[in-house]
């Protein structure tokens, strides 16, 4: 039944709802403080739909970055999405008309909800279910970004420090994965490779070396990791 699929998709998306509204509001406020109104928040939330990129985007807009800098920063900050997509190739097979939007909306959080293969719906409704989870998450994000931007006008207290919600989200995800997964090698590889590259290459140029180093180490560990799985 169609309504049942919608209900299950909504249920799955609830944990992301609050997070996206809070994070989206954080972004909306930052954008407001940088001097851009609700129309800009709406445009970015609808077309970019990527938390980290939008936060970075505020400083690109405010700092009058060039098109080239913006393009390179986008490719570096977002390179991890290549890998999210890689692990969804099999799951999204046969999604037909839903597929382009499902790929467009594959954020970190949507990925973490949909890479779980225990579907709460009939397998024949899997693609419709995944499409709806993606759509619900996107709506929360848009609502958060626009509301936060509008609140910037009236908020009675200082929002300094609110940007920490992004750090908190990733620390919470890492903790959750640490508790659920038996194999901690991939997480440790990510933490220590990135830390090393940050120390060696400095805060502006370490993401690409870190991605390469992580991929290299995990490639070298492949036979060992696959034996553990």
């Amino acid at each position: 039944m169609k309504n049942e699929v919608t209900r299950q998709a909504f249920k799955t998306s609830i944990p992301v709802m609050a997070g996206y509204i809070v994070l989206g509001m954080g972004f909306g406020l930052l954008l407001h403080d940088a001097g851009y109104g609700a129309g800009w928040a709406l445009l970015m939330a609808v077309t970019i739909y990527a938390g980290t990129m939008q936060y970075v985007g505020v400083s690109l807009l405010a700092g009058a970055a060039s098109v080239l800098t913006t393009a390179l920063t986008t490719l570096m900050v977002q390179a991890r999405h290549l890998f999210y997509s890689i692990s969804m190739i099999e799951r999204y097979k046969g999604a037909g008309k839903y597929k382009p939007y499902m790929i467009f909306g594959l954020t970190d959080e949507t990925y973490s909800l949909l890479s779980d293969d225990n579907l709460p719906v009939d397998p024949k409704d899997a693609h419709r279910y995944r499409f709806l989870v993606t759509l619900f998450n996107h709506s929360y994000w848009i609502i958060g970004c626009v509301t936060g931007n509008l609140l910037g006008e009236v908020l009675p207290f200082s929002t300094r420090g609110l940007e920490f919600s992004m750090t908190a989200l990733f620390v919470a995800s890492l903790t959750e994965q640490w508790i659920t997964m038996r194999d901690h090698i991939p997480a440790l590889t990510g933490l220590f490779s990135t830390l090393l590259c940050l120390l060696v290459f400095g805060p502006d140029n370490f993401l690409i070396p870190a991605l390469l180093l992580i991929t290299l180490i995990l490639t070298l560990l492949r036979s060992r990791e696959e034996a553990r799985a």
Binding site: S87, Y111, L174, P186, L191, L198, L207, L211, I214
Partner: peptide, 19 residues
Amino acid sequence: AYLGKVLPPALIGMLVIYC
């Protein structure tokens, strides 16, 4: 397919350091 499996936790670790 192997990378698709092991990269997500590694990338979340990367994002934490990034912050």
